[in-house]
Simulated assay, not measured.
Amino acid sequence: MTTDAPETIIVDSYRVACDGGEGALGHPRVYLTIPREVGYVVCPYCGRKYVHRDFADKLA
């Protein structure tokens, strides 16, 4: 059984930063690298899914 990511964000870069987006209620900023083979990465803190624009149609 898999659960959906709480939020999916389409990005133009293979390197992204995530801080939870909630200001003081977020989490420490982490830098994530999207593997070019799969086209997405999930933040280990908040579960946000970052999808590279080149893979947006394939993963929708």
Score class of each variant (00 low, 15 high):
50 Y>L: 08
46 C>Q: 09
10 I>R: 13
16 V>M: 06
40 Y>S: 10
23 G>P: 10
30 V>T: 15
25 L>R: 15
47 G>Q: 01
44 P>G: 14
2 T>W: 01
34 I>N: 10
41 V>H: 10
9 I>A: 04
5 A>I: 00
25 L>G: 12
12 D>A: 11
54 D>M: 02
25 L>Y: 15
28 P>D: 07
37 E>P: 02
2 T>C: 02
20 G>K: 08
1 M>L: 05
9 I>G: 01
34 I>C: 11
21 G>I: 12
2 T>Q: 02
48 R>S: 07
48 R>F: 10
33 T>I: 12
59 L>I: 11
18 C>Q: 04
49 K>A: 04
33 T>N: 13
5 A>T: 01
30 V>K: 14
10 I>D: 09
12 D>L: 09
49 K>N: 01
21 G>Q: 11
58 K>T: 10
38 V>D: 02
5 A>M: 01
38 V>Y: 05
53 R>I: 11
38 V>I: 15
11 V>R: 06
42 V>I: 14
50 Y>I: 09
19 D>R: 10
18 C>E: 03
50 Y>D: 02
47 G>H: 03
29 R>T: 15
13 S>A: 15
40 Y>W: 10
30 V>F: 10
45 Y>L: 03
25 L>K: 14
56 A>Q: 08
56 A>D: 03
38 V>C: 06
50 Y>W: 14
55 F>Q: 03
23 G>A: 11
39 G>N: 05
2 T>D: 00
45 Y>C: 00
10 I>H: 13
39 G>A: 09
39 G>Y: 03
40 Y>G: 03
58 K>H: 10
6 P>M: 00
15 R>D: 02
58 K>I: 06
37 E>G: 04
32 L>W: 14
5 A>W: 02
4 D>K: 07
40 Y>D: 04
5 A>Q: 00
54 D>N: 07
45 Y>F: 15
53 R>C: 03
41 V>Y: 10
56 A>P: 02
20 G>F: 11
33 T>V: 14
11 V>E: 01
21 G>Y: 12
2 T>R: 01
38 V>F: 05
8 T>P: 00
52 H>W: 10
6 P>C: 00
1 M>T: 10
40 Y>I: 05
7 E>N: 05
17 A>W: 06
18 C>P: 01
26 G>M: 12
1 M>N: 03
33 T>W: 09
37 E>A: 12
27 H>S: 07
42 V>E: 09
40 Y>F: 13
46 C>E: 06
2 T>K: 03
47 G>L: 00
1 M>A: 08
12 D>N: 15
45 Y>P: 00
13 S>Y: 08
35 P>R: 11
60 A>K: 07
46 C>I: 09
20 G>L: 06
18 C>S: 11
6 P>Q: 01
34 I>G: 11
36 R>G: 00
22 E>I: 06
40 Y>P: 01
41 V>I: 15
32 L>F: 14
54 D>K: 08
42 V>D: 08
48 R>L: 07
32 L>I: 12
39 G>L: 01
3 T>L: 00
8 T>H: 05
58 K>R: 15
